[in-house]
Computed example of a mutant assay.
Amino acid sequence: MARYRGPRLRIVRRLGELPGLSRKSPRKNYPPGQHGQARKKKTEYAVRLEEKQKLRFNYGLTEKKLLRYVKKARRAGGSTGLVLLQLLEMRLDNTIFRLGFGPTIPSARQAVNHGHITVNGRVVSIPSYQCRPGDVIGVRDRDASKKLIEANLEFPGLANVPSHLELDKAKMEAKVNSVIEREWIALNVNELLVVEYYSRQA
């Protein structure tokens, strides 16, 4: 299944706030559709599925890619849920979004795809690139790139830059100091239910 390109507020109404997907807030606070207001009590499976969908839509992943991240997190050792969130948060498109270089993750992904972003002085156009401690993320030295990022920095998606990133707004450059900590993950999700969802799928 391809990446979701439909109405974003519909997803926000169904799953709750997804800062990476949309900056807008829905006017109605119940799920969309004919039975949105008359939803019955959710089954355990529905709750786990909803948590998984939050991750998928917030980070803009296909089902196949998310499953690949879950398997990678399992192999890494430690808490699978936390490692999974860290892997997703350390993606280049998400790091660009957290720095304020893009108002949402889809727009940050587009900035990366179009070659506006550099990592350690080299242009990287792969949104899934895993940022590592010590990486220096910058803006490509050309007018179009600088104008785009300057405009985005005026109205960043999230107010605060996480503690693992160090941003120099004047130079439009940032350094990754460490792996992100759980309290700085902006998405309200229960990662243990996501791991449980996939363990029951296997």
Rank of each mutant, 00 (worst) to 15 (best):
L21Y: 05
A186I: 11
V47F: 09
F101E: 08
Y69I: 04
M172F: 07
P19W: 02
L87D: 04
H164Y: 14
E63G: 04
K64G: 13
L82V: 14
I126F: 14
V195P: 00
G20T: 00
R5H: 13
A108N: 05
A76D: 11
D168T: 08
I185F: 15
E196C: 12
V139E: 00
A73T: 04
D168L: 03
R56A: 04
S22L: 08
R48F: 09
Y69S: 02
K71S: 12
E44F: 13
L193V: 03
A111E: 02
L87F: 12
S128L: 06
P26H: 05
P156C: 01
Q201C: 10
E173V: 08
K40A: 13
K175P: 03
K169W: 12
Q53M: 13
F155C: 09
F101A: 03
E191H: 09
G115V: 06
N177L: 15
K71R: 15
N152S: 05
Y197P: 00
V124Q: 03
K40S: 15
K147M: 12
N188V: 12
I180K: 07
E166N: 08
S107M: 14
T43H: 10
I96A: 03
P26T: 09
I105K: 10
T118D: 02
R3N: 10
R13I: 05
T62S: 12
R109H: 12
P127H: 00
L21V: 04
Y30K: 12
A144P: 00
L167S: 06
L192S: 15
K71F: 04
K40R: 15
P32N: 06
Y45S: 10
P133N: 01
V123N: 00
R91D: 01
N113P: 06
E181Q: 14
T95G: 05
N113C: 10
M1Q: 13
H35C: 06
R3V: 14
L9Y: 09
G138M: 06
F155N: 14
N160E: 15
I126G: 07
K175F: 09
P133C: 00
V176H: 05
M172Q: 09
P31A: 10
G33K: 13
V112C: 02
T62A: 08
G81K: 00
T80S: 02
V47T: 12
Q86A: 05
L18E: 01
L61Y: 04
R3W: 13
L9M: 15
H164F: 09
D135C: 02
S79P: 09
G157D: 03
G134D: 00
A2F: 13
L187D: 03
V112L: 07
G115I: 07
M172D: 07
L15N: 06
I149C: 00
S178H: 09
P106G: 07
S22I: 02
V119E: 01
P7Y: 10
Q130Y: 07
Y45V: 09
G138I: 04
E50F: 15
P162T: 06
G16A: 09
E181C: 11
E166R: 04
E17H: 14
R68I: 10
K175G: 06
D93P: 07
V112M: 09
R182N: 12
L88V: 03
